[in-house]
Amino acid sequence: MSVSQLLIGAVSLAAIAGLAVVPSLVDAYHLALGITLLQFTILATAWGLFSGPTRYVSLATTAFFGVGAYTVAVLGEQLPWPLVLTVAAVIGSVTSAIVGLSTLRLSGVHFVIFTFGLAELVKQLVVWFEVNKSRVLGRYIFLDITQQDIYWQLLALAVIVFAVGWLIARSRLGFALRIIGEDETVARHCGINVTFAKVALFVISAVFMTLVGAIMAPRWTYIEPSIAFNATISFEVVIMALLGGAHRVWGPALGAIPLTLLFEFLSARFPNTSTLIMGVVFLLIVYALPSGVVGLIEKIRQFRRGSAAQGSGT
């Protein structure tokens, strides 16, 4: 381990420790903001885990988030909390494995279309089940979980998602995904099980999204399908990850933090035009920053290196 790696490790530990004491220092409003920031940081990072290397644009975030939230609504009072989270993760992984196996063999466009409607599909199935089988629509969540608890759980999950991302990037799976991103045909001819790699990553990413939904659920005391499956989250997560740059593990977070603050500000100040402004932000990113903040940083670095090399050459 080199000195710089040790330094990065030490700084990260200090940052985690610093973030962990935040709830005891701030008021309820800022704690809520902190929770939202963590929520989108995890969602965007998890999105980037799958969509960054495979270049599949997934609009399914809400579907998994909602599955997590609804699992808590149904089971929250019947099982101990760690078990509820485990069940949510299992349901999320099974759902994503089914979706992945049936759609990831299709082309990228078909995948976008399918995920575009997935949240709506899952929502409709949940509504149908609640109306016809369990005969309740809308459930109350009374759990002994405070805002602080939610914050700490999300912080822990954020640490895990970064650690997992870091590990994947260094693993054989990560290498396989880089090759798939470059040329899927070559990947197959190198002996890579392309479908398995994609589905595995899709499932890992979806489990994080499901857990975020589950951890966030106690924030609402009342939950119904239209709250749990709010399509806007999928769109926001895509914008955030793209602004940051999805081809690096830490890229999406760089987009999630400023945009969460911006959206919070907009929805408080201009509640009626927030959709419109979100669209404009989206277009600015697509046209002006096609490879995100990370791409911009890398370009600047390359430019500096290039001009330095030129300087020494002449």
């Binding site: 895509v238 419109l276 402004i277 979100m278 669209g279 404009v280 989206f282 277009l283 697509v286």
Partner: peptide, 12 residues
């Protein structure tokens, strides 16, 4: 991605 942004703008 671009028409996505457009969708929000028209909807907005």
């Amino acid at each position: 991605l671009a028409t996505f942004g457009l969708m929000f703008i028209v909807q907005g």
